[in-house]
Design a protein around this nucleic acid. Structure first.
Length: 586
RNA sequence: ACGCCCGUAGCUCAGUAGGAUAGAGCGGCGGUUUCCUAAACCGCAGGUCACAGGUUCGAAUCCUGUCGGGCGUACCA
């Protein structure tokens, strides 16, 4: 299937954030009309209600107190000083002093054409590219991926994609938990039960079975616990055999993880376990002590805050062992030296907020956070219908591989029902993209800070505000181009027209893509991208219902084909940011 | 006990510069297919935004208090 021919334009030629542009125009008008209040925020937002126009400025009411004047009169003066006739009609003043603005159709038409010719779809490139390390996924080894791992993975990967789209350098860093206390028990368990637990396709699942038995044995028998402690100590002391065992477990774990990452289409630039930082830990504690941050307390080493703004942070146990916090500080310093990042982003669930406030504060006082922005991007917990963490009937966490299987199974059913004429290979491919998309979108479309109530039907839903809805909109557009190509229809040069309300609404929404990206990038809120794409698809579908494309007159057809083409490109780009595939057919 | 987060339609959730009549999906009810994919579209019903005060021209949003829920608070990660 040939892509619709695209006019070659200078990349970035159509770059414009409408909200920003109008904000700047309004700011100039305020400065001109009220020099004393030239610092006032114009407060331009997309109009709440289409009857008020496309954008509104809400600054006049706020200025009224400061200037001791009637807000409507203030709005009037701002409008009089406003130079934006190239973008909007004469603004109207409504209610207490809202400035309502409506974009001119000629502007929409010109801008839509410009964006259509722009590879970046109107999205400005970051003027100062930053280097951002994104720490996400970071599962513990020797445990299968379960449903609780999905958020960090999906949101983290999407944030990486978003930052790259904005023109930043990204280091996607998978910080494996490969140095826990479970290894002693695993080593003992392997010796006790290794010969009687059968091999499996996924060696990690065998390891988990062994661990379960070892755990039960330790519960029942004190000496097993002692052995586990001894093996762990031996591992930490550098025992060759135990080290080899440990490496084997880590390899099996990675095989399992990589299988999941491949299915999920999630990628990393760097994968280093906690074990990698082991040698650095004593030095970290020494430095903290030398800097006067850490001091002995009850036999341990601990960082205190003189003003008690934060509770004490333990960096070395009284038995000499180091902790999670120590590793995180060592990792932070290592990343600074290795990547010289402008920012490090950590994705974890909400429960680690205090931990990261402590880590960031220590890093600052220690001096290793100089010139770096440290951000804890946290998300809510995945809960079952009863409000507690999700479990299967046997009490285990739901395995991610099973969720992916179930999603595909459901998607196959829908594909078979809706599009029976597909061959098995294509149906399977569509089902994979649709099932995986549904899972990712269910997670990304929700405010990340809310707890996530897991519900098979909701998570794997293919109807309403879901990824399949967006994929379907895309597939319908591609279908138009397939059909159009048969009779030689291609989007051409005639220009875009927005005479019909549905055309106008679609063009406007398309021009707002940069706003959605900017808003999402501000605070890593991927749900804003989802909202936008859903609205775009929704506006498109209305357009699709009311505006025939291929059956319209040539000039109109050409314009509509351009709108379709642009819609499909924004959808593809947007879904790509979410890590969701588009489909030519579904 | 202290700290953080939360309480919005029957259900799941948007609403993070304080702005006009609080939105969406699902579920419910009713319509739409000689036409580019009906995984769709159009319409209707459904709300004391937990409660009580306060701030202001204006509060789901900010402040205080109460009730209810989740999580966290030095030898786990």
């Amino acid at each position: 299937m040939a892509a619709p021919c695209r006019r070659q334009g200078r990349p970035g030629a159509g770059a414009m954030n409408l909200q920003q542009e109008l904000t700047q125009r309004l700011a100039r008008a305020i400065a001109a009309a009220f020099p004393d209040a030239s610092d006032a925020e114009p407060m331009v937002t997309a109009a709440q209600n289409p009857q008020f126009g496309d954008y509104q400025a809400n600054c006049a009411m706020g200025l009224s107190k400061r200037l001791k004047s009637n807000p409507r009169a203030i709005a009037q003066s701002i409008v009089a000083a406003l130079d934006a006739g190239d973008l909007i009609d004469e603004p109207t003043i409504a209610g207490p002093g809202f400035i309502n603005m409506r974009l001119r159709p000629e502007f929409l038409e010109r801008q839509a054409a410009a964006v259509g010719a722009d590879e970046r779809l109107g999205l400005p490139v970051a003027e100062t590219p930053r280097t951002v390390v994104v720490d996400f996924s970071s599962p513990n080894t020797c445990k299968p991926m379960h449903i609780g791992h999905v958020r960090s993975m999906v949101i983290g990967d999407a944030i990486c994609r978003l930052l790259r789209l904005l023109g930043h350098r990204v280091v996607a860093d998978n910080h494996l938990g490969d140095w826990g206390t479970q290894f002693g028990l695993l080593i003992v368990g392997f010796r006790m039960f290794g010969h009687e637990v059968p091999e499996r396709d996924d060696p990690l699942l065998r390891l988990v079975e062994i661990y379960k038995r070892a755990h039960a044995a330790a519960e029942a028998d004190e000496t097993v616990r002692d052995q586990a402690r001894a093996e762990l100590a031996r591992l930490h002391a550098g025992d060759q055999e135990n080290y080899r065992q440990w490496q084997q477990y880590c390899r099996w774990s990675m095989e399992h993880f990589n299988q999941i990452y491949r299915r999920m289409d999630v990628h990393f630039d760097e994968t280093l376990g906690e074990s990698f930082y082991n040698d650095l830990l004593p030095g970290v504690v020494d430095e903290l002590a030398a800097a006067g941050l850490a001091r002995p307390s009850e036999g341990a080493m601990c960082v205190f805050w003189d003003d008690d703004s934060l509770p004490p942070l333990l960096v070395r146990k009284k038995d000499g062992a180091f902790l999670y916090a120590t590793t995180d500080l060592a990792t932070l310093k290592y990343r600074r030296d290795r990547w010289h990042p402008d920012e490090i982003v950590y994705l974890t669930d909400a429960r680690q907020q205090l931990h990261f406030r402590q880590i960031f504060s220590v890093a600052e006082r220690w001096g290793v956070a100089e010139g770096m922005r440290l951000r804890h991007v946290w998300f809510g917990t995945i809960l079952g219908p009863d409000g507690t963490p999700l479990k299967t009937r046997s009490g285990d966490l739901v395995e991610l591989a099973d969720v992916l299987d179930e999603a595909e199974r459901r998607a196959v059913e829908v594909v078979r029902e809706k599009t029976p004429d597909l061959d098995d290979a294509e149906a399977g491919e569509i089902a994979r993209a649709v099932g995986l998309g549904a899972i990712k979108y269910a997670d990304l479309s929700q405010n990340r800070q809310s707890d996530f109530v897991f519900d098979w039907d909701k998570m794997l839903s293919m109807q309403g505000n879901t990824a399949p809805y967006l994929q379907y909109a895309y597939a319908r557009i591609r279908s138009i181009f397939r059909k159009g190509a048969e009779s030689g229809c291609r989007p051409g040069e005639t220009g875009v027209s927005v005479a019909e309300p549905a055309e106008r609404a679609l063009a406007l929404k398309l021009l707002q893509w940069p706003e959605a990206v900017a808003a999402a990038g501000d605070d890593y809120r991927m749900n804003l991208i989802c909202n936008y794409l859903y609205e775009l698809s929704s506006v498109f579908t209305s357009f699709y219902e009311s505006c025939p494309v291929l059956k319209s007159e040539p000039a109109q057809r050409d314009s509509r084909l351009q709108l379709c083409d642009l819609t499909s490109r924004v959808l593809k780009t947007g879904l790509d940011v979410l890590g969701i595939q588009v489909l030519e057919r579904m």
